[in-house]
Amino acid sequence: MEAIISTFTNPYYLQVASIMGVYMIAALGLHLITGVTGQFSFGHAAFLSIGAYTSALMSLYLGTPFILNLLVGGLMAALWGVLLGIPSFKLTGDYLGITTLGFGEIVKVVFINMKITGGAGGLGGIPRETNVVVVYSIVVLAIWGLYRLQNSRFGRALLAIREDEIAAESMGINPLLYKLKGFALGTFLAGVSGALYAHLMQYLNPADFGFSRSFEILNFVVLGGLGSIPGTVLGTSVLTLAPEFLRFVREYRMLIYGALMVTMMIFRPYGLLGGIDFGKMFRRYRAQRKSMKDKKAVQG
């Protein structure tokens, strides 16, 4: 399959498309935490790195199949998500933002100082298993799963917590439990994304998973529109492609990128697709068409 695709396009485009998909999976995870449940996490990259190192070490030392490594990478990230989430969510307010910020730095320092991860020199020689087909299959699977979650009793409970925690609690929702479940699912996706990243880049360095990477992923979600899946996908696409398209202006590209962000936030503070509900638009359109038809039937 990949061979067929690569005959149409060059490896550079494929690489950019794969990276974009990998970030999309991470951003979709953060979308569930921040966009749906309303909890700010500033350490998303740390969960990527946990998934990345776990799966890379499994590939290098155990030789286990790629799919299993992806899964275990995701589960490991989710496990740390739960361990961090339990104490953070017990406090009321936005403490998760602070603890995730600290957690991100700790994880980075741990990976720099561990021998098995290659320390600051990084971990190389990871087999290249990730390709554009695998990445986008998982992107589609993640989007499908998130749509189903959001339109269920579980997803509505998460939305209720985002909107009004006191009211949610009075509706019979246990906020601690639901925040934890949402956070575990979101960090699971981050772990899977990290595992894909490791087997795409074939080299890992703790410095790649610092605060700036976490912030970048948060940007994807916020720029696209908090709480919107199409928004998250669009935000990730725009912000990963923009630096590539801006390569011709070289040293000015980060300047333009920054200006783009500022303009965005002034003109669309809720993000590109913030506040736009395609499902609702579709239902309205259908209802309108139906009433038009009914009218015609009466007249005819």
Binding site: S152, R153, F154, A157, L159, A168, M171
Partner: peptide, 19 residues
Amino acid sequence: DNVRIGCHCRGRTGVLGAL
């Protein structure tokens, strides 16, 4: 959706059910 959330404690569907 506001009213549906009101029904929360009369339902049971979790993550797996939703998927």
